Each structure stands twice: as C-alpha cells, then as structure tokens.
Amino acid sequence: MSEVVVQAFITLDGVSQAPGGVDEDREGGFEFGAWQFDYPLGELIPEWESRTEALLLGRKTYDIWSKAWGVWDEDAPGLQGELTRRYNRVPKYVASRTLTELGWANSHLLGPDVPAAVAALREQPGGEIRVWGSTELIRTLAEHDLVDEYRIITYPLVLGTGKRLFAAGFPHTRLSLVESWPLDFGAIVSRHRRAGN
C-alpha cells in the first residue's frame, strides 16, 4: 500500500505560497515569492525526496513544476540535478478540470473523480506519493481522509498575506504528532499522521 505524504514549507502565520521562486505564484498580488530561499535546506529535503515514488499535483503546481523540473538539466550538479532526475522518472498524477493532455514525461491525468483515483493509487503497492504545493488538491484530499502524513517545516517568518496550507474552511482533521525538532536557523520540522495510524 502507498501513502500520500504532503510536504510543505510554511511561515509562522501558515503561508505556503511561492516559497521557491519570485514569480512562482503571484496569484492574489502575492509579492513575497522565494521567501524560503533566505534559509538553508540542508540534508532534510534530499532525504525526504529519496522516498518519493510518485508525485500528486494540482494543475497550478503541475504548470509550475513542468516548466522547471520538467526542463532543467538532469546533469546539473547537486540537489537540482538529483531532484530533476527523480521527478522526471517517477509517475506524476495531476488533478485538473481543464487540462486534456500533459507534456511532462510520465504524467497522467487523474480524471473527473479525483478522490476515487487517489484512493486507488493508495491501494497499489509502492512507497510515498508526494504532494508539494497544490493547496486546493490537499483540501480535497483532506475532505476524503486521503492524506496519511503532513511533513511541515515552519519558518520563523510572518508574511501577513498569501495562500495558507490550512486556510479557513479546511476540513476538520485530527492528527497525531509523530516527531518534531528545531533546525539551526530557527525553523521547526514536524511530522503529523492521521490520528490512529
């Protein structure tokens, strides 16, 4: 059985919008793109991503990632090349009401019944099905109790605006804290699983 794992960078006020690039997501007039770049990544993300067996993405995140990871040089040094190789090879499952075809290698549309498609993916043998970004998709998954784990790095930063991972109206969700620890620069890493798992 596979597990759906949401990974997120968030600020103290819960903002998860555009941590990775200035123009990554300017929706709503967001002006703080690339806010996470002021902080080191360390070895945590490569270790987490080494477990990624598939990506589960909303349409907007798919658009952003396919124009980045989907075209970057796989032979680039360091983490960029490592993740580009991994992301190009794993299957990518995309939730979209508007896309009819996908250009990034190994990408598949989930179809009109996203919860049923994701439930079927979870039943297949495999490892971690990784969700990055995709706040609307995460909300849908949570409504159907399809998220097995949230891995969150909370940064010592308040932006006061932007999309939040757990925005108003997010479904009631009971979680258990698996572990948490501070990073040297003041961020907190936490892992939360569905209560009872």
Rank of each mutant, 00 (worst) to 15 (best):
D38H: 09
G42F: 00
G42C: 04
L44V: 14
L44R: 11
P46W: 06
E47L: 06
E47H: 12
E49I: 07
S50I: 08
S50K: 11
R51Y: 10
R51W: 08
R51N: 11
E53L: 02
L55N: 13
L55Y: 12
L55P: 13
L56E: 13
G58I: 05
G58D: 12
R59P: 02
R59S: 15
Y62S: 00
Y62H: 11
S66L: 00
K67P: 02
A68R: 12
G70D: 03
G70N: 02
V71Q: 15
V71M: 01
D73P: 08
D75L: 13
D75N: 15
A76E: 08
P77N: 06
G78R: 12
G78P: 03
L79F: 14
G81I: 15
T84G: 08
T84E: 07
Y87P: 02
N88Q: 12
N88G: 10
R89T: 04
R89Y: 00
R89A: 13
P91F: 02
Y93Q: 06
Y93P: 04
T98G: 02
L102N: 12
G103A: 05
G103E: 15
W104S: 02
L109K: 09
L109V: 11
L110K: 07
G111S: 00
G111Y: 05
D113H: 08
D113S: 05
V114A: 03
V114C: 06
V114N: 03
A116H: 02
L121R: 06
R122C: 01
Q124E: 15
Q124C: 01
P125A: 12
G126C: 11
G126Y: 04
G126V: 07
G127S: 11
G127R: 12
G127V: 03
E128I: 01
I129V: 15
I129F: 09
R130I: 06
R130Q: 13
R130V: 07
V131S: 11
V131G: 09
V131D: 09
W132Y: 12
W132P: 01
L137R: 08
L137F: 00
L137V: 08
L137T: 08
R139L: 00
R139F: 04
R139C: 01
T140H: 00
T140F: 01
L141Y: 13
E143H: 08
E143D: 11
D145Q: 14
L146D: 05
L146H: 10
V147K: 10
V147A: 14
D148T: 02
D148G: 15
E149G: 11
Y150D: 13
Y150L: 14
R151V: 00
T154Y: 06
P156G: 01
P156Y: 01
L157G: 06
L159S: 00
G160R: 07
G160L: 08
T161G: 00
T161K: 15
G162M: 12
K163N: 02
A167T: 01
A167Y: 06
A168W: 01
A168I: 03
G169Y: 01
G169N: 04
F170Q: 04
F170L: 04
P171V: 13
